[in-house]
Amino acid sequence: MSILLTKANKVIVQGFTGGEGSFHAEQMIAYGTTVVGGVTPGKGGTQHLGLPVFDTVRDAVRDTGADTSIIFVPPPFAADAILEAVEAGIRLLVTITEGIPVRDMIPVKEALNASGTVMIGPNCPGLITPGQAKLGILPGFIHSPGHVGVISRSGTLTYEAVGQLGARGIGQSTCVGIGGDPIIGSTFTDILKHFRNDPDTKGIVMIGEIGGSAEEEAAAYIAEHIKIPVVSFIAGQTAPPGRRMGHAGAIISGGKGTATEKMAALKAAGIHVAQNPADIGAMMAELLG
């Protein structure tokens, strides 16, 4: 079992014919993802990677039955691409694009809230259901099918955690990189709700970082609703205040959003908090017995 993504998802790629879009479309297809076509305005009617290209998302949905989309569109045009996917009725959307202005994301978030679209990202590596499908830029080969769900604001730190799980023979149900921006489509809590409904997920790894209060909100949700073990790590224990640590959302401002605060909230909610990022895999292994 898994959440959100399986082989049954019919995927289109927005920004299909660009360098990034092409490369990752090929990687996704090679992994087993059902990619049915792509969208590049002005190139409708042509073929790319042996698949049809459409001018609009609506055309692509009509002709292919696509229910899922992934966006590789440069920041100035990304908000428009998201709204086009939402309007066309895409159910699951991943936005890889890094660097979308906050002013663009505010109305996008509003539109997402009023729609039936689940968006992951932006500024994220996407998600993967090992052995089934990947929708994003994550390296497929480090993942293996299993029963631990992974949610993270970071890309490579997630790979690190997945690597540690794999080294102990622990596979994953689905891994979701929710992204490092201040406004994202799906929060930790949104994804936790999906994992809660997946009887096959027996444990959850949640990797947060400094900035905002999404981890604290997730802690409150976990305390009330999640009965399986949760292991968490918060990156940025040594980050100085007021500095943006790479991710636009990773900033301690006004004394808020520190790792210490987040770790305390997680512990109070009964979550197993790793002080050391090298302990994530071992802690989960111990909890699963």
């Binding site: 993270s152 970071s154 890309g155 730190l157 990156a235 790479g246 991710h247 990773a250 050391n276 990022p277």
Partner: peptide, 22 residues
Amino acid sequence: GAGLAMGTMDIIKHVGGEPANF
């Protein structure tokens, strides 16, 4: 990666060092 970069700083501190940079 920003997350792993922060995580690396954290583990350096954890094993008794101090990170010089991100």
